[in-house]
């Protein structure tokens, strides 16, 4: 078991699903139920990749994504966005924050919309990490 993958999602079912996919790929799964806990684990565990949901209580995926992308310490961490929110809504929100004077952030390497096929998630994970 090599690389560490952090799953951040408030929906326990989605977490279990994503973790199972991570395990099937022979990566080490970590899990967090909201953005705040996610950030804490990122700092503690330095995962190689984060699978991130958008719509969560406390810290949303939009915020966490921004923090990971703007902090030099985390610049090597890959991110897969996995959400029920369409990609363009996510990008629009990021753009709005940028327009309000925050730092510009790049588009995510991968954006998957729920519901996702396990094969697709698996493929995306492997593409990025290998």
């Amino acid at each position: 078991m090599g690389k560490k993958v952090l799953v951040v999602d408030d929906d326990p079912d989605a977490r279990l699903f994503n973790i199972t996919v991570v395990e099937e790929c022979n990566y080490t799964p970590l899990e967090a139920a909201d953005g705040e806990e996610g950030l804490k684990l990122v700092k503690q565990e330095k995962p190689d990749l984060v699978i991130l949901d958008v719509f969560m209580p406390r810290q949303t995926g939009i915020r966490l994504y921004r923090e990971l992308k703007t902090d030099k310490r985390f610049k090597n961490i890959h991110i897969i966005m996995l959400s029920g929110i369409p990609k363009k809504t996510f990008l629009r929100s990021q753009k709005a924050l940028t327009e309000f004077g925050e730092q510009e952030v790049p588009e995510p390497e991968a954006y998957l919309e729920k519901p996702v096929e396990p094969g697709e998630l698996m493929q995306t994970l492997k593409q990025i990490l290998e």
């Binding site: 929906d11 079912d13 989605a14 279990l16 699903f17 994503n18 199972t20 029920g84 919309e113 729920k114 519901p115 996702v116 096929e117 396990p118």
Partner: peptide, 11 residues
């Protein structure tokens, strides 16, 4: 509904 479907797929 997408979230629920995601749950179904996962299940």
């Amino acid at each position: 509904i997408k979230n629920i479907l995601h749950g179904f797929k996962g299940g």
